[in-house]
Design a protein around this nucleic acid. Structure first.
Lengths: 230, 230
DNA sequence: AAAATTATTATGTCTATACATAATAGACAG
DNA sequence: CTGTCTATTATGTATAGACATAATAATTTT
């Protein structure tokens, strides 16, 4: 265990055990560095990790305080769907449902401006059972080469992640009840609950793709990482 | 903009634009430091951020590679429910539904061993409308002082976050359809979709509390931060 | 040829020092 | 007492250098 890890672990202990209670101002980093017998740089590294995790708050001149616990943040990891399925030990398969080329009228949200769009619907299966319905719009302004892809063999998800640059991603999670089309493809009853991940991808300010990924609620959940220091 | 931010931004640009494509081995950090005209420490800081975000992978002796994009990770922030509601501009209110003291039989999952348990059910409202149904088990081994709390005025959520130390949190997200009890308290129809957050909190190896937070799907969603460098 | 040993090397840790800067506290003027 | 300017200070950034270590590559031994 390295010095900064020891320092961090001990600080974490003091915070979680409330030896250092919420709102308390800590000694200056130089003082703490001295106490722990490390250089200021090492001290700062330990404290940077705690700051990142939201356990302490630091401000110039004001000093370092133990943060009030008003929220809990954790890391949400969403793998590409093929990896998610094969990692679970299941057999992955994929089927294209439809591929429609059209104009801006395909985009009800108006986020794509006047770009020509590709609307692709497909389904991902685990051991032959429907796992995810992928309903995607791709901007041909941002990704002209998508026009030449038929998506019969490779899913838009995989193809885009592999081939297309992006800089920002916005994700929304929610629950819905399945509409007729979703129920049909996911082999659910009409009105059954589904877990929806909606994601918009941009390259700088240019919208690249917008996808709605729908999963049967009964066989889908997301666990977040506890973001522990190891 | 600081030197490490400039370096990081430029590296990010090269990666997202695929000037440095997936799998490419980057020049050594000393060489890059030289190219960017910064010290090795500064270079390392920029690279540490990119590593943290999963954009590059580093290994001793082997060097630094642009990571294959197999997943997207983002930060999930779940505030305490009162803050979530008041931040949205709504009026927060809270009502205790039941508070039952019992033994390990309350815990169907068997995670609490033989601890005495407190089972508290309550509802959080936004502008008088049901927002979240909180169904919680509290270990009296870990939190004996919970026995003295009636939870009439302050919610278990808030009380625990404020008063009780913890070191690890495990969160699961899923969609369900409302059972009779949930439907009644959330003013939904039986079978309507709900968004469920389940969370288990520990102090070291001791389970502290297990909570199931149920939200009407129609008025609840979670947006994750894009985790952008500013 | 395979296995075990040794050398090399890129990343990782730690230290010490200098200077920058945001934010507060204190001094001062009105 | 109020607002403005100034000084102080804790954190933030940057640098250079020494040493540690994991992992690969090269060499030697079997």
């Amino acid at each position: 265990m390295h010095a900064y890890e020891k320092v961090r672990a001990e600080m974490l202990r003091r915070i979680t055990s409330q030896v250092w209670p919420q709102g308390m101002t800590l000694p200056h980093e130089e003082v703490l560095a001295d106490e722990f017998g490390v250089a200021r740089g090492t001290m700062r590294r330990a404290m940077a990790d705690l700051t990142e995790r939201g356990l302490i708050e630091r401000k110039r001149k004001a000093g370092t305080k133990v943060a009030a616990r008003r929220a809990h943040s954790s890391t949400l990891n969403i793998p590409i769907v093929r990896v998610e399925i094969t990692d679970s030990g299941a057999q992955y398969s994929y089927k294209l449902l439809s591929r429609v080329l059209g104009g801006p009228e395909l985009d009800a949200t108006g986020r794509f401006g006047r770009s020509k769009l590709l609307h692709v619907r497909s389904i991902h299966l685990a051991d032959g059972r429907p796992y995810q319905l992928e309903d995607r719009l791709i901007s041909l302004d941002a990704v002209p080469q998508a026009d030449a892809q038929d998506f019969n063999e490779i899913s838009p998800n995989e193809w885009l992640v592999e081939k297309v640059p992006y800089s920002a991603v916005r994700t929304i999670l929610r629950a819905e009840s399945a509409d007729e089309m979703q129920a049909k493809h996911l082999k659910l009853g009409h009105g059954d609950p589904v877990f929806v991940i909606e994601r918009q991808t941009q390259l700088d300010d240019l919208p690249v793709t917008l996808v709605k990924m729908t999963h049967p609620a009964a066989s889908f959940s997301i666990a977040t990482q506890t973001s522990q220091f190891r």
